[in-house]
Amino acid sequence: MTRLARFVVDHFLALPLGVLVALVWANTRGESYFRLAGALAFVVNNVGMAFAFAFLMQEVVEAMLPGGTLHPWRRAILPVVAAAGGTLGAVSVYALYVRFADEPVLALGWPIACAVDIAVGFALARKIFRRHAAVTFLLLLIIASDAIGLVLVSQRYPVAEVHPAALALLVPAIGAAAFLRRSGVRPSLPTCWIGGTLPWLA
């Protein structure tokens, strides 16, 4: 890896640089930008984001294990409660803005006020706090906010049919992951396929 690439990775610069490039591109050659964004939507949203979520969840799960910064559960519940309060506040501000700005069409989008960009939040937190416990606290808070938003969207404005029974797929996935761990298999791409595909489908 070149020194520049390492610098970019070490300082979490890939995301802000990507945002900057996307902003300039969308505002200068919008048609090609949106065409590419449309073509890559599935790969980015359903594959790339699945890996990003998996990576971030690993941080949270490890923090909730004995010895972790979010252990025991009473500690973990705090960011979840904070997320509930945070979403309530964000939705109220959003509703006020929609009313003030006379944009009723945006009123339908109130659940979006619950959403926090996990990747940006994580990058910022790591930049500021390094390996401090605040990072996992913030991560869990963000994930809880997004989960609240997702539940609200799926209930009020479903874009696809919801199949709660599909969550049952998590059982064999967790079973497979536990079996692989007990068998001493080291995490690799094939183990990701076994443990990751079923939750992805769910």
Partner: peptide, 8 residues
């Protein structure tokens, strides 16, 4: 047609 200022 509906615009951004119109209630749905």
């Amino acid at each position: 047609a509906l615009g951004n200022h119109d209630e749905q």
